[in-house]
Simulated scan of single mutants.
Amino acid sequence: MTTPPPHPQRLALTDGPFLVGDRVRGTTYVPPDSRKREAPEPFEGVVVQVGSGYPKVDADGDFLWSRLADHTERQSLVDETELVAREQES
């Protein structure tokens, strides 16, 4: 059995502006039915998931999940999130 050579660079599996591992900042997404109990808040974290993970859910807006320093996760809309730093491969 032969081992394939390593890829010279990581390939993006998305057409979006973010990759898993990117450091981002933005405003949390709060669904309309939760806005009486919860308000959007600013955050900064590391991308752990691009997209909701559910078919057809991202039709109304592209979602992003980020892990914060306290190990909790926040959901945001791609349009309301910006790239802070991209993880560098060695």
Rank of each mutant, 00 (worst) to 15 (best):
L19S: 14
S34A: 12
V24Y: 01
P31L: 08
L11S: 13
P6E: 14
D79Q: 09
T2M: 13
V84S: 06
V50K: 00
R86W: 05
L13Q: 14
G51M: 01
T14W: 03
G16T: 11
M1C: 10
A85G: 05
T28R: 00
A12L: 12
F43S: 03
G51H: 01
S90H: 14
T72R: 12
P17D: 14
D58E: 03
E82I: 06
R35L: 09
E41L: 13
R23L: 14
P6F: 07
D60P: 00
G21A: 10
R74W: 04
A59C: 07
F63C: 11
V30Y: 01
L13F: 15
T72L: 09
R37V: 11
A69P: 09
H71E: 15
A85P: 02
Q9Y: 15
D62R: 02
S90M: 14
P17Q: 13
G53M: 02
L19R: 09
T28L: 05
P5G: 10
Q75G: 07
R67H: 04
D79R: 04
R74S: 04
V47F: 01
P55R: 03
G51Y: 00
R74T: 07
T72I: 07
A69E: 15
P8F: 08
T28Q: 06
V48M: 05
E89M: 15
A85R: 07
W65T: 10
V84R: 03
R23A: 13
P5I: 09
Q88F: 12
V78Y: 03
G21R: 01
S90C: 15
R10D: 10
S34E: 14
V20T: 06
F43K: 01
A69Y: 08
R25L: 06
P55M: 04
L83S: 08
Q9S: 15
F43R: 01
G26N: 02
V78W: 03
A12Q: 10
D22I: 02
P8K: 08
R10N: 08
P8G: 11
D70S: 12
V24C: 01
T2E: 14
E89K: 12
A12N: 10
P32R: 10
Y54H: 13
M1Q: 11
D22L: 03
S76A: 14
R10C: 08
P31H: 07
L11K: 12
F63T: 08
L83R: 02
G21V: 03
G61I: 01
E80C: 05
E87N: 11
L77V: 06
Q49A: 05
P42W: 05
D22Y: 02
L68R: 13
